[in-house]
Design a protein around this nucleic acid. Structure first.
Length: 1006
RNA sequence: GGGCGUAUAGCUCAGUGGUAGAGCACUUCGUUGACAUCGAAGGGGUCGGGAGUUCAACUCUCUCUACGCCCACCA
């Protein structure tokens, strides 16, 4: 015996994984084979394997192993994401612990520190994916900031810029005051927060009154602090109450600022007083109203710095006591909000909210309590402040159009289909994507700016890095000729310099161009007078980096060698229209095409993408847009979206709740195979998975079951099959199990093809346990130990072949135990020629053997019935019995003769004869057309047997009655499908016959 | 305010236009060698409520209820 008594996953997992990886079998050389490609969602370099990764990667591994075994050039691309914000936060946190901060370092030094951290501590997850058994192509592991990705990001940015699909704009962004960076719409999550709704009087200026004589307009707000930057009050154009004051002015009590009352549809007459204060610099709606009211973005007042502390507005009207306060109460310290409310109250401009107490007394409150949907940054965890800054935007609307079309046309198939609607809904309403981030870790934006970008005429909206000094008028005068706010976008600094030279020499005569580090140092250089601006022009590179998702959106092609493996398109220089098909040899808009034979040509489009639905917008949709834009083809043919893994009670797992299940702990306890099988078995389309340790344990038991079955085989001279196809077999039980393999394989392939992981797992599970272990191995025991050597040899060959098929079919789900068994089972016969990971997937060949199937099916039902009768009649299960057949025909006689050994050994029927049964009390069983009489000398409880038969009879009669009822309905016979009618007739005949026999059996009992 | 999903055995979930299945749990029995991480036999569901289509509905349509998720600028 080479197999240990117990299966110990830990003992084999690491060994097999190392072997596979070291022998390069995750991506065998198969240059001529049909390609199959999946790219793995790159996990954050800061990340560790959580249960969601376990699900996501198990599913991908199942597919990739299956395709690899089918002989394809299966490529599973793997890599890590630099995860801009997350990684920078990790390193900054560590600095904070040492009493340092980021700005103690230069940008270059800080970035260097992050790289050091990445090399030392990053990527822990790659080892954990290995523990899960994932067979990705580590030999070509990528990183979103490696050389190739950097080149791709630069090219994409520049190409998009040149096509007008990426642009710089000044508008409100979602600003995270904790992280001091802009974030995209998707990174904002709305939470309900308890807040207040304050009502104020805004006095009308110049003695103007409303029609009702009131000398103020009532406005209400959930953000009183922003009134320091109010620039208007809006009323609905058709609101009767305010017609006479439209165009008149308000004098804001605290700042004394005067501003107009404007008419705008945004104001809802039904809400509050129908008048709303407008703060264009700090509210998305107000920004739009402000623009409609004629304010340019640059004119809009800003009252916050990057940390959302109050700073002075351009007009200098904010009283000193507010400057430096936080926007609202923080750490128990009152902020601008509290002070504004207090001052307004003191000034008599607060309209209190009045409620009645239980005693009927009126109680005044400053604000009406209210639940407010408040935007939070998903990383920083603080309230987002809409803030007016210059940022880079991708024209997502334009890019989205072909991506929408791709799904509509079926070029991309989304599985499950129900997600299409969500995809369309988002894509059709997509907003410009803010891609610049005020961070240091990431892809630095390849844009250089000329001096005008920091001229004094420009409104210096607070921007990182903070610019808190004035620019001299001298400079402005000296450079008034430097024209526009010029931007040079290029893949290299040299080229940007060249562009700048051409630009400035054209306009203002030749001057030398120098590049300075950033906007801040550019200012310092200019102000210090170090540069003679008559001779030199400084340009500076954009300080910002790109959103992490900008680079990961390129993953499906950039990891395959784009743009390195592009070559001139040979056909023509014509621009290529998007094909949105599955054709090969994609080309880019610049007349380039993937080099024939390269991975890029062979593996793009990818065949499948598997991701959680939670990153459908973040990642999947953006890959679709960028893939089509740059490759003129969809990134993948199918997109499979799975749900979340939830805690046992159905809640979301989260660190704060402390209900996070560690997949590595489950692997330690039950083995990677068991965890993987659990994930597959639970993955039905369109539903979240609830964690269930008991079920993982169950699949551990399944692995043990297979292990023990293999030990049995080994002990009985059953080993690795010598043939790929099923051996010839004459015995019904062998022909039957071969047919069962054929059927199992067919449904397994279908399930995997349909991405029904649960169905696939259940198919192989039940075949292995119910068919193979519970019946086949039991039925062949007498054959293995019998005298008929030919029968024993045939059975050994078939059993060995079937076990091989199980091991092969199960391998994608349980790679470790199957690889171990694959080799162990061949140990006695000289070993295998190749590892299971690259073994050939079986091809269904033999037709199903109906005769054998019918015979074994009968055998199983007979044995089951005998067992059941024994239990109900309280007969010890080991008791040997004899049976006498009534109404049996010759073919039944033959069957019984063929199966006598199995009937004896498995069914405990030591003889089955066609002689009449002895008189007296007997147990009786009706199967198909025959009755089996089991004489029970004396010790039978006649009443129990009567009850047993009576119950069976009742069931038969009930079914027969229902069937005959249906058949006597003329509508059924006329309108139902003929097959249905036919089947009902046949079933009725069977049931009636069965009932008759049972009745006869009862009669015999007296 | 829109959109989506889910409601099937005690629990977790499959399922098909023709009178319901799995795993776990539960009950009873079982240790002569593959396996007690096991075997055998069982009990248990009017498939969320209502209406409709159909010869026939757990399965299709509508509606109601409950729960969950996503998107959305209501001050």
């Amino acid at each position: 015996m080479t197999l240990d008594k117990n299966f110990d996953p830990a003992a084999i997992e690491a060994r097999w994984y190392a072997h596979w990886e070291q022998s390069g079998q995750f991506r065998p050389e198969r240059g001529d084979a049909e390609p199959f490609t999946i790219v793995n969602p790159p996990p954050n370099v800061t990340g560790s394997l959580h249960i969601g990764h376990a699900l996501d990667n198990t599913l991908q591994d199942i597919i990739i192993r299956h395709e690899r075994m089918k002989g394809k050039d299966a490529l599973w691309v793997v890599g890590m994401d630099h995860a801009g914000i997350a990684t920078q936060m990790v390193v900054e946190r560590q600095m904070n612990e040492r009493g340092e901060k980021r700005t103690d370092y230069s940008r270059e030094d800080f970035v260097e520190k992050v790289w050091e951290w990445k090399e030392e501590s990053g990527g822990a997850i790659t080892g954990q994916l290995r523990r899960l058994g994932c067979s990705m192509d580590w030999s070509n592991e990528r990183f979103t900031m490696d050389e190739g990705m950097n080149a791709a990001v630069l090219k994409v940015f520049v190409d998009l810029y040149n096509d007008g699909l990426i642009y710089r704009d000044k508008r409100l962004v979602n600003w995270d005051p904790a992280l001091k960076t802009a974030i995209s719409d998707l990174e904002v999550e709305t939470r309900d927060v308890k807040g207040g709704f304050w009502h104020f009087k805004y006095p009308l200026a110049d003695g103007v009154k409303l029609d009702n004589g009131q000398d103020y307009i009532e406005v209400a707000t959930t953000r009183p602090e922003t009134m320091l930057a109010d620039m208007a009050v809006a009323v609905h154009p058709s609101d009767e109450r305010y017609q006479s004051v439209i165009g008149k002015e308000i004098e804001q009590p605290i700042t004394g600022r005067r501003f107009r009352i404007v008419a705008d549809e945004h104001a809802d007459p039904e809400l509050g007083s129908g008048a709303v204060k407008i703060t264009p610099g700090h509210d998305f709606n107000d920004f739009e109203v402000g623009k409609r009211a004629g304010f340019a973005a640059a004119e809009m007042l800003n009252m916050f710095d990057a940390e959302a502390n109050v700073c002075q507005t351009e007009d200098g009207l904010i009283p000193d006591e507010y400057i430096g306060l936080h926007r609202f109460k923080r750490d128990g310290v009152d902020g601008a909000r509290e002070l504004v409310v207090q001052r307004m109250k003191e000034l008599g401009f607060l309209i209190p909210h009045v409620t009645k107490s239980k005693d009927g007394e009126t109680v005044e409150h400053d604000a009406e309590p209210r639940t407010i949907a408040t935007p939070f940054g998903d990383r920083g965890g603080v309230v987002i402040e809409p803030w007016l800054t210059d940022q880079w935007y991708v024209d997502a609307k334009t890019l989205a159009q072909p991506a929408i079309e791709a799904v509509k046309s079926g070029a991309i198939e989304i599985v499950p289909k129900t997600w299409e609607k969500t995809y369309f809904n988002w894509m059709e309403n997509i907003q410009p994507w803010c891609v610049s981030r005020q961070l240091w870790w990431g892809h630095r934006i390849p844009a250089w700016y000329g001096p005008k970008a920091f001229s004094p005429e420009e409104k210096l909206s607070p921007h990182w890095p903070d610019l808190s000094f004035d620019v001299s008028d001298d400079f402005a005068t000296a450079n008034s000729t430097l024209l526009n706010d010029e931007v040079f976008v290029s893949e290299s600094e040299e080229d940007a310099l060249a562009q700048a030279s051409i630009y400035y020499s054209d306009r203002i005569g030749s001057r030398e161009i120098v590049v300075v580090e950033n906007r801040l140092s550019a200012m310092k250089v200019i102000l210090s007078g170090e540069l003679d601006l008559k001779k030199t022009i400084p340009i500076w590179r954009d300080s910002d980096v790109l959103d992490t998702w900008f680079s990961s959106a390129l993953w499906p092609f950039a990891t395959l060698g784009w743009p390195r493996d592009l070559v001139e398109e040979s056909v023509s220089g014509e621009p290529v229209e998007p094909r949105l098909s599955n054709e090969k040899h994609p080309s880019t808009s610049s007349g380039l095409t993937a080099k024939p034979g390269s991975d890029l040509a062979r593996h793009y489009p990818n065949d499948l993408l598997i991701s959680g639905f939670d990153i459908l917008f973040f990642w999947d949709a953006r890959m679709a847009m960028q893939g089509i834009q740059f490759m003129k083809e969809v990134p993948w043919k199918r997109l499979y979206l799975h749900g979340l893994v939830r805690a046992e009670d159905g809640s979301k797992m989260s660190k704060s709740k402390g209900n996070v299940v560690d997949p590595l702990g489950l692997i330690d306890e039950y083995g990677a195979d068991a965890l993987r099988f659990f994930m597959a078995a639970m993955e039905s389309q369109g539903r979240d998975i609830k964690m269930d340790d008991k079920r993982v344990e169950g699949y551990r038991n399944f692995a043990t079951k297979l292990w023990n079955a293999s030990r049995f085989c080994e002990a009985n001279g059953i080993g690795a099959s010598k043939t790929l196809h099923a051996p010839d077999a004459a015995l019904p039980v062998n022909r039957w199990i071969i047919s069962e393999v054929t059927e199992t394989l067919a449904s397994l392939d279908k399930a995997l093809g349909d991405l029904r992981f649960d169905a696939a797992a259940n198919t192989i599970y039940h075949f292995t346990w119910d068919r193979f272990c519970d019946w086949y191995l039991e039925l062949i025991k007498p054959l293995l130990q019998g005298e008929d050597k030919a029968a024993a040899d045939e059975t050994r060959a078939v059993a060995g072949w079937v076990l091989d098929q199980i091991i092969v079919m199960l391998h994608p789900f349980m790679p470790f135990i199957t690889e171990e068994l694959w080799h162990s089972m061949a140990a006695e016969t000289g070993g295998r020629e190749y590892d299971l990971i690259v073994a050939k997937w079986p091809e269904p060949k033999a037709a199903v053997d109906k005769d054998a199937k019918a015979e074994v099916d009968w055998l199983i039902r007979l044995i089951s019935a005998v067992r059941a009768a024994k239990v109900e009649l309280n007969i010890a299960p080991g008791t040997k019995m004899t049976a006498h057949v009534r109404d049996g025909d010759d073919s039944l006689k033959d069957r019984i003769a063929r199966q006598s050994a199995a009937l004896d050994r498995v069914g405990r029927l030591e003889s089955v004869s066609f002689d009449p049964a002895p008189e007296g009390a007997n147990a009786q069983i009706v199967i198909d057309g025959a009755t089996y009489v089991l004489p029970l000398a004396g010790a039978i409880d006649v009443d129990a047997e009567k009850a047993r038969l009576g119950k069976a009879l009742e069931a038969s009669q009930k079914e027969a009655k229902s069937l005959s009822g249906r058949l006597s309905n003329p509508n059924f016979v006329e309108k139902a499908k003929p097959e249905a009618v036919e089947k009902a007739r046949a079933d009725l005949a069977d049931k009636e016959a069965e009932a008759e026999r049972l009745q006869a059996a009862l009669a015999r009992l007296g």
